Computed example of a mutant assay.
Amino acid sequence: MAAANKQQVDVSDDLNYEIWARIAKTTLTEKGLWDVVENGVPPDPSKVPELAAKIQPEELSKWRDLAVKDMKALQNLQSSLTDSALRKTLYASSAKDVWDLLEKGNNEQAKLRRLEKQFEELSMDEAEQTNSYLDKVRKIAEQLRRLKNGKSDYEVVTKVLGSLSESHEDLATLYESEKRESQSSNELPVYEMLSLALGPVTFYEDMWLLSSGTTNHMSPYLKFFTTLDRRHRAPVKLINGSIIMLKGRGDVKVMTKEGKRKTIKNVLFVPDLDRNVLSLGQLGHLGYIMIMNRDKCILKGQRTEKVFGEAVKEEGGFVLRYQVIEGNFTST
């Protein structure tokens, strides 16, 4: 599954989805694996109580054959990805998950490019009212915000000003009021955990799941924190659109299996989570890179070459296991 096994890697490490998808589908079809990508694999019937009691041996055998095909398809897909695309699929547990995730991302990128072009090319008709044109610009800007490429009110008004002639009055007032509103905004930050859905995999306290779609490190365990700023409170958006609240930010001290102590800084305390999460983005900002080696993922400092940890692929994704040196916090 390692990205290093690819025969050819784009220089920019960007995935050309349209070309990749055609080649991947053809390859999987030739190998007789496309059906599990297209249709997925049902849950293990032996672990479903209402099915386990009456399932026939031949039915269970068919399911196991599908599961083997799915694992082969998953390995084929992930081994063909660029490093950046592979990181986005680390938590995927099936070939269909990988395909759907990349397809959705490509659709969103296409929509983003289309909206960006609309925003740049939008201009005001000669007889159009200022407020009407402003509404059109804001509508596109709001759609861009939903795709995490938002335009501030200040940028919106700047766009409007650039499209108008000198004959329009009240522009300075509009511009300055929007600028002051943008500069004085004190909205809470919104954190995201878009690559993970709560349940159904069981996670234990010593497990830290690597996530490429999570903006920050997070933990639901108050007792883990050695420091905690309870004044830091903000919403956390999940992949299904629901919102949960974080109730603090602080540091967590852990001990590796080699007995070395590490401090994970700026961890968000999110009581309603069911797992500990390490953000690959946050680690990347600190200079750590990810090295894939079959079913293992090594996090190492790009300059220092110090190893942060070695994650192993488990049911829920790539997981680091740390013994936590518990803090003094015992109640919310």
Rank of each mutant, 00 (worst) to 15 (best):
1 M>N: 10
3 A>Q: 13
7 Q>N: 09
16 N>S: 09
18 E>W: 00
20 W>I: 14
31 K>R: 14
35 D>M: 02
40 G>H: 01
48 V>K: 07
55 I>F: 05
57 P>A: 13
59 E>Q: 11
60 L>V: 01
65 D>Q: 12
69 K>N: 01
72 K>Y: 08
79 S>L: 01
81 L>W: 07
85 A>Y: 04
89 T>N: 06
89 T>A: 09
93 S>V: 10
97 D>M: 03
98 V>A: 03
106 N>K: 07
111 K>I: 06
114 R>A: 15
120 E>Q: 11
123 S>E: 12
123 S>D: 13
129 Q>N: 10
140 I>Y: 12
147 L>P: 09
153 D>L: 12
154 Y>K: 14
155 E>L: 10
163 S>T: 07
164 L>W: 05
174 L>C: 09
175 Y>T: 07
194 L>M: 14
195 S>D: 15
197 A>S: 10
198 L>R: 00
199 G>R: 01
201 V>M: 00
202 T>W: 00
214 T>S: 15
217 H>L: 07
228 L>S: 08
229 D>H: 09
233 R>C: 07
233 R>T: 13
233 R>N: 05
237 K>I: 09
241 G>I: 14
243 I>S: 07
248 G>A: 05
249 R>E: 13
256 T>K: 09
259 G>P: 06
264 I>C: 02
266 N>H: 10
283 L>H: 07
284 G>M: 05
287 G>V: 04
287 G>Q: 08
291 I>E: 15
293 N>E: 13
297 C>Y: 08
305 E>W: 09
310 E>H: 07
313 K>E: 03
315 E>W: 02
315 E>A: 06
322 Y>W: 13
322 Y>S: 02
326 E>C: 03
331 S>D: 05
